[in-house]
Design a protein around this nucleic acid. Structure first.
Lengths: 350, 350
DNA sequence: ATTGCCTTTGAAAGCGCTATCATCAACTCT
DNA sequence: AGAGTTGATGATAGCGCTTTCAAAGGCAAT
């Protein structure tokens, strides 16, 4: 736990008997240094346990190799693939991805963007298209490439890849309606703007189909979890006992609904059909497996990262496409579609 | 998307007609500047949209206000509360928490530590006690406070708070044995070291009780998910059809086991008792709710962050306690203990 | 030999900020 | 009234690195 100051470039240079520039070159562009010196410097680096001071290096070179990523949440499985995809592209290219979680708060998002700007990232990736005016302003004036993901907009800050959540919500309703359902409930939690848009799509589509939504929408102003799904669905049942289908704003609520059905002896999908959103891993595993609207999270992350690389590498050239709608797909499973009846009550195998 | 370079301290100073130092003071210690100038400078800051260059500021002051946090995963709900707790303490104190996810890889962890060191964090918080030698070395020579969390060790790098996972595994076994179970299975995934330790505790305790573990342990070398729980439990059933209890290394596998039981018509807990690990939110919501070993994740995060603050603020003084074992508790629920039989088959409420 | 052109190394300047010390005015106290 | 004190501002140096640009040596071509 030595509190002696850490070795600097100059320390290494002194130890190796060369000038500081040479040490810098050994680290950044080893090809420029003769075999002989390169070895001597490397030894000194190892011996002194030298780690370049990124702050100084970035300040001097005006290249930080940082890409800032803002996510609204880390809780809900949704942003793992996404962030993972971004890192898989950017890390090998020599960039450090700095992820800040803003917990679904616009104020925190603004703060986070400002904080990140202080580190002079070479690009920014933000989730959603609903930044505050000030946040938009910060991003725009930053002068670096900005990618908005997860949602689509007519007025992107810069680049944009996502999907139309209103359309996805509407599609879920159409799907259930196509199955013959008319009393279709919607459960939603303290929504991020995208969940609200899905809700809007649900409402619009229900109306377009001439279906009533009275008593069929339940929400609570906190971050969702599985138990909330049970609670919200219970509320629905209290108001509309003969509800036959539920579309939830995410898979946690869908799973909670499924559990509530199990608890009450309601058969899924025969008595109640369930459609979730996000298609998290547990959807395939539950009994019955959950139908869910699947989104291209990895695709969005990868595209965002690659576009950024192109721009930075291509010295400012913009990619041909500024905006991409990656769409969505409904993964139909047993929670909405009984299908060719499998023998569900199979007994202990052995 | 102006590519003009961003405003600097000097730009602001020029605009406000003061010296650069004064601008710096308005930002860092406004009390030192007269009302009059303070206002003029603030206006200039706003007009030029000045954001301090953190790199330059940190370099000059040798205070980065950064605390580095290494987590092995963001996927599994486990690290949210933990990171959240750390941020809740450190952000208000003016620190930026930099979280790096190393995806359960020792090599990535080493890289991440090295990368973070380049930013000269004022403290480091790492999950687990199983860093590579080089990683330990890096952390030790960094000269900053280091907290190892989530696990306990006799040989901490610096500070340490966690729990004894072997003991937790053993306790789960003792609990199930106390319920009368003797054929107790264990499911585990590509383990982080803590999962392996829980496994070790399971084995040791089974042996101590004189119970066989033949065919009762199943694992797969990938990151776990709910479906894997179903798969592993199926494997157990194939080998030991009359298994009566399952202890899993995490809640995902527990939930997968529960689903597999539902699929096969096995009653939980009458036919199969299930005990998970971590006590994630869905444990209370499932049918039946899942018994799980609960860990003090928020406590660990809070303690780590507060200890760091004490050390930094207290100019190097170490807290009285260097090592803390926060223990664990078994949250007993319906998946292991039928309890006073509730009417599970309640019909549709209305 | 002389010119020219690489290749390898180093000297100097400066990235944007803060720490330190100096300056100067305004004020208190004896 | 003179010395000492306080408070507000600025000049200067330097954090650790990279980016020029210059220097020095080696070599081939004239």
């Amino acid at each position: 736990m030595s509190r002696n100051r850490r070795a600097t470039l100059s320390d290494v240079a002194r130890a190796a008997g060369v000038s500081p520039v040479t040490v810098s070159r050994v680290i950044r562009q080893p090809g420029m240094v003769s075999e002989n010196l390169r070895q001597r410097v490397s030894d000194a680096v190892a011996e002194l346990q030298y780690i370049p001071n990124h702050l100084a290096s970035a300040l001097a070179s005006t290249r930080t190799n940082i890409v800032g990523v803002i996510v609204p949440s880390l809780t809900n499985g949704v942003f793992d693939d996404y962030v993972g995809a971004i890192e898989d592209v950017l890390n090998p290219a020599g960039f450090q991805v700095l992820v800040l979680n803003v917990r679904y708060s616009e104020i925190e998002e603004e703060r986070a963007i400002q904080a990140l700007m202080g580190y002079h990232p070479e690009a920014m990736i933000v989730a959603g298209v609903d930044q505050t005016d000030r946040a938009r302003q910060l991003l725009k004036t930053s002068g670096v490439p900005v990618v908005q993901t997860m949602d689509v907009t007519d007025d992107p800050i810069d680049l944009n890849i996502g999907l139309d959540h209103a359309e996805a919500g509407a599609a879920a309703v159409r799907y259930l309606h196509g199955l013959g359902h008319t009393r279709i409930a919607h459960l939603t939690a303290r929504g991020d703007p995208r969940a609200r848009r899905r809700h809007g799509g649900y409402l619009r589509q229900m109306q377009a189909l001439g279906l009533s939504t009275d008593g069929l929408v339940q929400s609570l102003p906190r971050i969702s979890d599985v138990a909330m799904g049970s609670e919200l669905f219970s509320n629905i049942l209290a108001e509309v006992p003969d509800v036959t289908a539920v579309f939830t704003c995410n898979d946690d609520l869908a799973l909670g609904t499924l559990f509530e059905c199990q608890r009450r002896g309601l058969r899924v999908p025969e008595d109640v059909a369930i459609v979730g959103f996000n298609d998290l891993d547990f959807c395939v595993a539950s009994v019955p497996p959950l139908t869910s609207v699947s989104t291209e999270r990895r695709t969005m992350g990868t595209w965002a990262a690659q576009s950024i690389l192109e721009i930075i590498r291509g010295s400012g050239k913009r990619p041909k496409q500024q905006s991409v709608d990656v769409g969505f797909s409904i993964k139909v499973r047993g929670s909405s579609d009984a299908g060719p009846v499998p023998d569900r009550r199979q007994k202990r195998s052995a």
